[in-house]
């Protein structure tokens, strides 16, 4: 039987893909990965636009004690991720944001909170004796053992989050690009910001279950940042972001199925390669365009 053989890459791509989907756990990994990639990339696009990357970072770190605590209490880690991420999002929304000198103060607070959250996660893991090995999958992700029910749950929550994003998308875009004008035009900027942070919490909680708490950025930031490098049109950028998110997830999962090393390494590496590649490409085209402008200007 083929299932006894370790997977081997061949030049026959169709065969490779068939091999990839031979096991149910791998099918589920791809289903979950697809859902997560779409949700994270779409919401991440707005997050990067609103420059709330560090809110995303804090939320992802807070997810870790949530998941560890849930496992310690004997509940599914998913509940822990969602509960902690959403509560943390509401807390972040409640804290006023300082500017200027307050920034140094604020960053000290954020650093302290993140370290404390991680320490709490470590405490829960230690209290749940014998679980020390599971810490890796909580921090760095794992695609093994995703059940059908989990895929359905991810899909349902992801659809809900995307639906909210569709409803608030247009005013949110306006509020993100020019807060003052949007507020003057009667858009509820504050309420939108709170709603967005909650949606962001949901996206982080979803992504954490595939990438682990520490590597969420690979799906949340990289596709969005790369897309914004490629185009400044929001609709097109959103599509790019989702496309790149899917590419990173599928490639990451596919390679880690064939190669020995963990999925966290492959997704972050693919993400990094995509980001660097696009940076180089856009810089090259930018330089060429500048040269063309110069020659045009020099021409009589």
């Amino acid at each position: 039987m083929a299932s006894d053989v370790t997977p081997q890459l061949s030049w026959n791509l169709v065969h490779d893909v068939q091999q990839l989907f031979e096991f149910h756990f791998m099918v589920n990994a791809f289903r979950a990965g697809t859902v997560v990639a779409v949700v994270a990339a779409a919401i991440g696009y707005f997050m990067v636009l609103r420059q709330q990357t560090f809110a995303g970072h804090t939320l992802s770190v807070v997810g870790f004690p949530g998941a560890a605590g849930a496992i310690w209490l004997g509940v599914s880690a998913s509940y822990g991720y969602f509960a902690f991420c959403i509560v943390a999002a509401l807390l972040i929304a409640a804290v006023p944001h300082g500017r200027g000198r307050a920034f140094s103060e604020e960053s000290a607070v954020i650093g302290t909170i993140q370290a404390f959250a991680l320490a709490c996660g470590f405490l829960f893991v230690s209290l749940y004796a014998g679980f020390l090995n599971g810490i890796d999958s909580l921090l760095f992700g794992s695609f093994l053992g995703i059940t059908d029910a989990q895929v359905v749950a991810l899909l349902a929550v992801g659809c809900g989050a995307l639906l909210v994003l569709v409803v608030i998308g247009r005013p949110l875009l306006f509020a993100s690009i020019d807060t003052d004008v949007a507020a003057a035009r009667g858009i509820p900027v504050r309420a939108l910001s709170v709603a967005f942070l909650v949606v962001l919490g949901v996206a982080v909680a979803e992504a954490s279950q595939i990438t682990g708490s520490l590597l969420v950025f690979a799906l949340l930031v990289v596709p969005a940042a790369t897309a914004q490098r490629l185009t400044s049109r929001p609709g097109v950028g959103l599509a790019w972001s989702v496309g790149l998110g899917l590419l990173i997830t599928w490639l990451g999962l596919g390679i880690s199925y064939y190669a020995d090393y963990p999925v966290g390494f492959w997704t972050t590496s693919v993400a990094f390669a995509v980001y660097v590649g696009v940076q180089i490409a856009t810089r090259a085209t930018g330089a060429r365009a500048a040269r063309r402008r110069r020659t045009l200007a020099a021409a009589p």
């Binding site: 590597l215 950025f217 690979a218 930031v221 090393y261 966290g264 390494f265 972050t268 590496s269 990094f272």
Partner: peptide, 13 residues
């Protein structure tokens, strides 16, 4: 975020 997530990924490797 991008660079250091990748460095963390290297750590996982």
């Amino acid at each position: 975020g991008t660079v250091f997530t990748w460095i963390l990924g290297l750590g996982v490797l």
